[in-house]
Amino acid sequence: MSLNLTINSSSPPLGALLTAEHVKSSVPVSVEEGKDTRLLVSDSIQFNDSNSICRYLARVAPALGLYGASVMEQTEVDHWLEFSARRLSERPGAMAALAALDKALSLRTFLVGHGLTLADLTVWAALKGHGLWPDPDRSLPHLDRWFSFLSSQVPFTAVGSKYLSKRAPPSRSSMDE
């Protein structure tokens, strides 16, 4: 089975791209640039938003455990998927979300369970994509530790340099405080 992911290159779905990088050894996914983000699964089913694409890719590569190991872990992953798509994307309130994230990471290496899941991928992608972190004006040690830990690993560096280098860094004046 080979899947084809079309992405909108002016606003690349970083979470979906990261997930595709992670699953590519078990499920080949080819990525091409186009007008809209889209993953065609069958004649009647296609997914257009980043979270659905992430969920599907995690489910077709169950051995990687990206969707968590139990019903409770899956629920936590669902929580962070929504958190990355909603709270980290809404301008007013994104700063409070960062503090909440820091608190959640205080006793954890990964956001859910003891390994990498969609939660880490999508939250990292939202922070990176919206230019929310690193933030030199704020000290959130747990978030900082987790973010640099992930950023130093191969799929993250690959996706970061491939899809973000072309874009101008977001201007800080547009950020809320």
């Binding site: 629920t75 669902d78 929580h79």
Partner: peptide, 18 residues
């Protein structure tokens, strides 16, 4: 073991799985 879960959608998914 679990962080507090936010949002009706995630809670609904959890309850449905039971």
């Amino acid at each position: 073991n679990m962080c507090p879960i936010e949002g009706e959608a995630s809670v609904a998914r959890f309850l449905f799985k039971l």
